[in-house]
């Protein structure tokens, strides 16, 4: 009996979406390992509840009236550091994930996960694991580019601008560039102006000079 008590994970839920909170409550309470000891509709209410009981894990939404999830998390981390916080939200950005991790939240999970993963995550948080879905943005930065690409990226140029720069260095006039690239003269001029701004050179001659200097990159 005692060991069973020990296995039991106490939970509190804070979500203003009533249907979701109730549904989550129903699913979790059916699970033999979990015990729901409180449900709140916003950050303030959950702080009240926490004054009476402390759960093992607090499942909290971010977007709530009166006191939103993020601020509530910060307060809870200060007042009740023993409570493990799991954020269950509709939103997920890498920025938010980083921020929540800094605050000391144990997990940041999207609401539309399936029940099994949810159960698994809750159990593992109890054991001290953390869950932050790494968004794909971090993968992006790992993309490989060659030297050419590096030049383009470092000067913040577009591939069309690279083409134009190359043609400038080959002594093409704007008219010729327009013909060669099938764009209007106006567009070439706009590109020129944009490059002058980005490369911080002065006028057509400045651009030509830059083009010649970097011809063989």
């Amino acid at each position: 009996m005692e060991s069973k008590e020990q296995h039991l994970i106490t939970l509190m839920i804070a979500d203003d979406h009533k249907l979701f909170a109730e549904g989550l409550c129903a699913i979790l309470s059916k699970h033999p390992n979990f015990k729901i000891i409180g449900v709140a509709a916003n950050g303030k209410e959950i702080l009240h509840l926490l004054n009476h009981h402390l759960p093992d894990i607090l499942i909290i939404d971010l977007n709530m009236p009166v006191l939103d999830g993020e601020t509530a998390c910060e307060k809870i981390r200060q007042l009740f550091p023993s409570v493990k916080i799991m954020v269950l939200s509709m939103y997920h950005t890498s920025k938010l994930a980083t921020k929540l991790e800094e605050i000391g939240v144990k997990a940041f999970i999207q609401k539309d996960t399936d029940a099994d993963s949810l159960f698994k995550i809750i159990s593992e948080i109890k054991l001290g694991e953390c869950f932050f879905e790494k968004t794909k943005s971090n993968l992006q930065s790992a993309s490989n580019y060659n030297v050419d690409d590096h030049f383009q990226k470092s000067h913040n140029l577009t591939s069309r601008e690279m083409e134009i720069l190359k043609l400038i260095s080959d002594d093409y006039t704007s008219q010729q560039i327009a013909q060669k690239l099938f764009i209007s003269l106006n567009t070439v001029d706009t590109h020129r102006k944009n490059m002058v701004q980005k490369l911080n050179v002065t006028g057509k001659t400045g651009l030509l000079k830059f083009a010649l200097e970097n011809k063989h990159r």
Binding site: D15, H17, L19, F20, G23, L24, A26, I27, K30, N63, M90, Y91, K111, D112, T113, D114, A115, D116, L118
Partner: peptide
């Protein structure tokens, strides 16, 4: 849309997957 309908859809998914 996001909060209300999204929340409802999420709980539907949770409910259904709970039968897994």
């Amino acid at each position: 849309l996001h909060d209300d309908l999204g929340g409802t859809l999420s709980i539907i998914k949770l409910n259904i997957t709970a039968f897994q």
